[in-house]
Design a protein around this nucleic acid. Structure first.
Lengths: 242, 242
DNA sequence: TTGGGTAAGTGTATTCATTACACTATCTTT
DNA sequence: AAAGATAGTGTAATGAATACACTTACCCAA
């Protein structure tokens, strides 16, 4: 790690969401400690003089090699006893210059297209993995609280501004992918015909020439999300899916 | 100020909303400096070992003498140059033990019933006043940013969960008051008959025996918000006004 | 080449909520 | 007793949401 000065009181943690055409996953960091696998959200201390959003952007970039991602601060966690598991305390003692100070962490949600991610041989991560958001997994520190809150707030946010869900899809996608994504977000299944009817009302969904190939059934048409059309023709809340 | 130990790195600021039957206002603190009136949001440093929510609750209580208010953290402001106005710097130098450290502040929205507020002769406030949220007013530090963000997020929040708007109304209120409140939130006027029709679908609005008196026109009926009925009969999103 | 498997793609009728809109009722004041 | 002021009320038209079943196009295997 280069010779940066860190503010020992403030950190950022990132809940990074990705969609694999089936479920929504988050990125976790795995570390080995006393023979156990410990999972945690990616995060880092904020540097002296560094803006909070910048710190989050930096963590994301170091981990995924991506920039200009959807990124939103969603809550700050500052309970004085955020760190109380002996293993976590030991870990903090081993990596922090000032392990005794109270750290408050600003949590961010981020959305990535999984196929764009290039896992860097990250300096601070032993292993990085995608974990389904709806599959329970004990995390270090208060990261279960952080991840659950982030997921709840993301769902609310997307219900209000469904636009941002497109950050989770590839450039071209089928309506089936889009529907599966929305089903994962609302947590229930939707009627195919009604879903298409509503979606295709939105002019910013444009059909491409291209079709699926190599699938053993009628190939689906690809669509893209046209941001220019979206911005021209649609005020923020002129469309609502839910 | 009692002999508490403060964490010099972390503060909370509160955007406290009140409704006066006409407009929505926020609570501001006025200080005099070099002959000028400077306005700021109420806030304080967090104490050592104190939870963030506790600090916000404490600021609210010291200021309004109220407890159990609607309170929600909405964003953390941590730009390294949050404090750059010379007057603000001078002020910070005069009151802070460690004026040079970078302070990040966790901002909270809070809703109060204005008639319940008893302004305490607050230790840290020279004067406290209600200021209309839609009337521009330069504030100290980055408090304009904080107040504007808080107001925007409150509006979004209430559109999703209109329930919480009742925290701004007295125990008993008329439908006209309720409508004016919603108009202030959405920023446009609503049709009276349609508004009543939709509102009265919600069983948790119960008519009281009592009517207005002393008004020089047909007196309006009073209603109350029945939280028990709300909780029994209504899932969170079974009603939506917007 | 043909038949079976599989998901894509399509339309209509019903129900329900939203909107637009104007007059009467009840109290106070003069 | 009349004037002023706001409360309180109903209906018709429009548009959105829902429920629901069959045909199409491709791959694969026999």
């Amino acid at each position: 790690m280069a010779n940066f000065h860190y503010n020992p009181h403030i950190s950022v943690d990132c809940v990074i969401f990705g969609f694999d055409d089936e479920r929504i996953n988050i990125l976790l960091i795995k570390r080995k400690q006393e023979g156990k696998n410990i999972y945690a959200l990616p995060g880092d201390l904020v540097r002296k003089g560094e803006d909070l959003d910048h710190a989050a952007t930096r963590v994301l970039f170091e981990l995924t090699n991506l920039q200009n991602l959807y990124l939103e601060q969603f809550k700050t966690f500052g309970s004085p006893d955020r760190i109380n598991d002996p293993l976590d305390i030991e870990w903090v003692n081993s990596i922090r210059e000032h392990p005794e100070v109270r750290v408050i962490t600003i949590a961010y949600n981020s959305l990535v297209k999984v196929e764009d991610v290039e896992f860097a041989p990250a300096s601070f991560a032993e292993e990085v993995l995608w974990h389904p958001i709806d599959k329970p997994q004990k995390l270090a520190f208060d990261h279960n609280d952080i991840a659950n809150t982030g997921w709840a707030m993301l769902r609310e946010k997307i219900k209000r501004e469904p636009l941002i869900a497109f950050s989770l899809l590839p450039e071209k996608f089928t309506l089936r992918q889009l529907q599966t994504l929305y089903e994962a977000i609302v947590g229930s299944s939707l009627d195919k015909r009604n879903f298409r009817k509503r979606m295709l009302r939105n002019k910013f969904l444009v059909a491409l020439e291209e079709k699926q190939s190599g699938v053993s059934h009628k190939p689906a048409q690809y669509f893209k999300f046209d941001e220019a059309i979206y911005k021209e023709d649609f005020a923020k809340d002129q469309w609502f899916l839910f």
